[in-house]
């Protein structure tokens, strides 16, 4: 059965020359969907992507990545929502195309961030007057 995992890879300077995405596709049969990337030779970089494939292949791919100096975070790491800074005004709601930022409770109008639904478009960052949304990049 094929599954999809959202991952965030951080590359130190030493690993930016390696064609890692190519290896993930060729050696582990993974389907890659890159949301955001910055990989420049001689500098550190990052990749934010979905990988889809057989669970065993994904495990092998992670094992391969861990032999490199790449740091892997599973989950959405591209957008940070700071619950303390959020005032629940809702200014972000019409700017969020997927409903990741939405009122969780119609009575109290408490706002919540559903990480899984976020596509890291970053439209919320300028829309938030309180700086509650920020980019990891």
């Amino acid at each position: 059965m094929s599954i999809t995992k959202k991952i965030y890879l951080y590359f130190p300077k030493s690993e930016t020359e390696k064609p890692i995405v190519y290896q993930l596709v060729k050696d582990f049969n993974l389907i890659i969907n890159i949301f955001r990337a910055k990989v420049t030779p001689e500098e550190e970089g990052y990749l934010s992507l979905d990988v889809t494939g057989q669970e065993a292949d994904i495990e092998r791919a992670f094992a391969y990545l861990s032999t490199l100096e790449v740091v892997i975070h599973v989950g959405n790491k591209g957008l940070r929502w700071d619950a303390e800074r959020c005032t629940h005004c809702g200014a972000c709601v019409v700017h969020c195309p997927t409903g990741a930022l939405a009122f969780a409770d119609t009575a109290t109008r408490r706002l919540a961030f559903t990480e899984d639904v976020c596509v890291e478009c970053h439209a919320c960052i300028p829309a938030c007057p309180f700086g509650a949304c920020s980019s990891s990049f």
């Binding site: 005032t87 629940h88 200014a91 972000c92 709601v93 700017h95 109008r109």
Partner: peptide
């Protein structure tokens, strides 16, 4: 959308 927080 709103700029005023009902929650607060």
């Amino acid at each position: 959308t709103s700029l005023s927080s009902y929650y607060k």
